[in-house]
């Protein structure tokens, strides 16, 4: 049941008054009285309030505020550039512009922003892909992944930019070995390099570093300061700053290969973060709900249906504002 147009207009008038920066406590009280007058008033108000909340979540840090204003504020400039692209059909020029500015980025890593865009092996959000390399190595790319291969006579080298990849290294044929001797297999990442010792392993970009999980054989991690060998059945996370403790392997970590997300008493917050990797947009979770746990096997190809299932299983309300923005909220809206 949608509120009447007139009610929506009244709710907007209240919102405009209260957001002015000059609203009195009497204004706030009057708005509360107005909301209490009719369920439609309350509904319209809550919808508006929920709409403006994500806007403010975008900009908690001053740096992000700056980015937001720089990106969005000058619409005339944006439209001019879009029109130029439409007319001149020069999508490539845009890529060059992006790369032109990239040299300035203080990312603290030699990876430059255009590299992932132009990488040899990439997947888009929600896609996955299987790649066979010349030496028989198999790569399974999960959602939103980019990497390059760079093989030469002495080394088989991969550059991992972002996302997640499951590697099964190939055994070179005797003929190849005779030609090239044994070539080490190296995966370079922003946080350090991995040397594969005949093996099957998973590399995943994490917020603070790189996650490594070894299913067969062993992998040596080198973050520039320390080395550590990770054996089959083990996993850890590392960054330039440190190599984390070895943990036992989570067997569900590679379920995405079969198109599944497996949760065993997984906190809802973590579950939604995982799911979010497979759809465009942003899922936010009310902090009060983040510790609810969820278990089950979910199909990754249909994230929207998984969200539906979450709503049916847990005491939560899934609100989709527009395609990109989903919020998971407590069932009954609180005043």
């Amino acid at each position: 049941m949608h509120p009447d147009q007139r009610v929506v207009e009244e709710a907007i008038a209240w919102m405009v008054t209260l957001q002015s920066g000059h609203a009195s406590t009497e204004d706030h009280a009057a708005c509360l009285r107005w909301q209490a007058q009719h369920p439609q008033h309350k509904l319209a108000w809550e919808r508006l309030r929920d709409l403006s909340q994500p806007m403010q979540q975008v900009a908690p840090a001053p740096a992000i505020k700056h980015l937001a204003m720089q990106t969005l504020a000058d619409n005339a400039r944006t439209e001019q550039k879009v029109q130029a692209l439409m007319q001149r059909r020069q999508a490539l020029k845009l890529l060059l512009l992006v790369s032109g500015s990239a040299g300035l980025l203080g990312l603290g890593y030699k990876q430059l922003p255009w590299q992932p865009m132009l990488a040899q092996y990439t997947t888009r959000v929600g896609q996955n892909k299987r790649v066979m390399l010349a030496d028989g190595t198999e790569l399974l790319l999960n959602t939103a992944t980019a990497l390059d291969s760079d093989f030469d006579a002495s080394t088989r080298r991969l550059r991992f930019y972002h996302g997640e990849v499951l590697l099964t290294t190939g055994h070179e044929s005797p003929a190849q070995q005779a030609n090239t001797a044994h070539r080490p297999f190296i995966v370079e990442t922003a946080q350090g390099s991995l040397r594969a010792l005949g093996t099957r392993f998973l590399v995943r970009q994490r917020e603070q570093g790189i996650g490594l999980a070894v299913f067969e054989g062993a992998v040596e991690v080198n973050n520039g300061a320390q080395r550590q060998i990770v054996q089959a059945g083990q996993q850890l996370e590392f960054s330039r700053a440190s190599i984390g403790a070895v943990q036992s392997l989570n067997p569900d970590a590679s379920a995405w290969v079969d198109g599944l997300l497996i949760a065993r008493a997984m906190p809802l917050g973590q579950f939604l973060q995982e799911l979010n990797r497979y759809r465009r947009g942003h899922i936010s979770c009310d902090p009060a709900l983040a510790q609810l746990t969820i278990s089950g096997v979910f199909p990754l190809q249909q994230p929207e249906r998984v969200l539906q299932a979450v709503q049916e299983t847990l005491p939560v309300r899934v609100v989709q504002y527009w395609h990109y923005w989903v919020r998971v909220l407590p069932p009954a809206a609180q005043a």
Partner: peptide, 27 residues
């Protein structure tokens, strides 16, 4: 194209931040 242009403006704004304030890749 609009998405691409906004992304470009975003990258340029990132470049103008002091290195210490650059948010994580995920952020």
């Amino acid at each position: 194209y609009r998405r691409a242009v906004l992304q470009q403006q975003f990258m340029q704004a990132l470049a103008s931040l002091p290195p210490a304030e650059i948010p994580s890749l995920e952020a």
